[in-house]
Every structure is written in structure tokens, then in C-alpha cells.
């Protein structure tokens, strides 16, 4: 049972979390300018790196989405941060 740090709640059991996405992907848009290939890459193309990985997870109990940096081999959690968002706080 891994322990993930929620930026909002603190350390919690992994069963309270859910994987959301690989981090760093940009949603291609607007839709009319996006090829079928680009869209399917966005939806289904995952790097699934061995070792260091940056992922977006959600803490289901509080709803916080977080940027988790972890090692998929050793299971070490290297960093956890709130999403940068698009708000004024982020700029």
C-alpha cells in the first residue's frame, strides 16, 4: 500500500487516489484543426515510462488533482504538487 501526499489533505493511502493522466500532455484544439491521428495520440498514446514518471492523479475524497512525480520501479514518490491551473495565481 503506497502513501501519496495530497497537497490539500496530506499523506493518504493510495486506495483514495485515482490515476488521471500522464502529465505534460497538451489538449490539441480547436477541434477542426486537429487531425484524427493527433487526437488519437492524445487520447490513447501513453509513454508509461519505466522509472521516473510525472503523472496527474486525483485524490477522490477531496477532489484535488495533483502532479505526482514518482518512480514506477522503486515506487518512490519524489514530489507532489497542486496543478498549476490557468488562474491568476499561476501567472
Amino acid at each position: 500500500m503506497q502513501i501519496f501526499p495530497c497537497p490539500f489533505c496530506g499523506p493518504r493511502d493510495e486506495t483514495e487516489f485515482h490515476f488521471a493522466a500522464e502529465a505534460g500532455k497538451h489538449r490539441p484544439e480547436p477541434a477542426p484543426e486537429v487531425t484524427d491521428t493527433a487526437w488519437s495520440d492524445y487520447l490513447y498514446g501513453a509513454d508509461a515510462p519505466k522509472g521516473r514518471a510525472r503523472e496527474v492523479w486525483v485524490h477522490l475524497t477531496c477532489g484535488e488533482f495533483l502532479l505526482l512525480t514518482r518512480d514506477t520501479v522503486t515506487r518512490e514518490v519524489l514530489d507532489a504538487a497542486a496543478l498549476p491551473g490557468r488562474g491568476e495565481a499561476a501567472t
Partner: peptide
């Protein structure tokens, strides 16, 4: 969660 993800990832959560 669909709403929360867009709120936190795409919009200004405040």
C-alpha cells in the same frame, strides 16, 4: 470529477 479536472486544469479555480 469531470468538472473538477477541468476546473483545476483548464480554468481559474478561484
Amino acid at each position: 470529477l469531470i468538472l473538477e479536472e477541468a476546473r483545476q486544469d483548464r480554468f481559474d479555480p478561484s
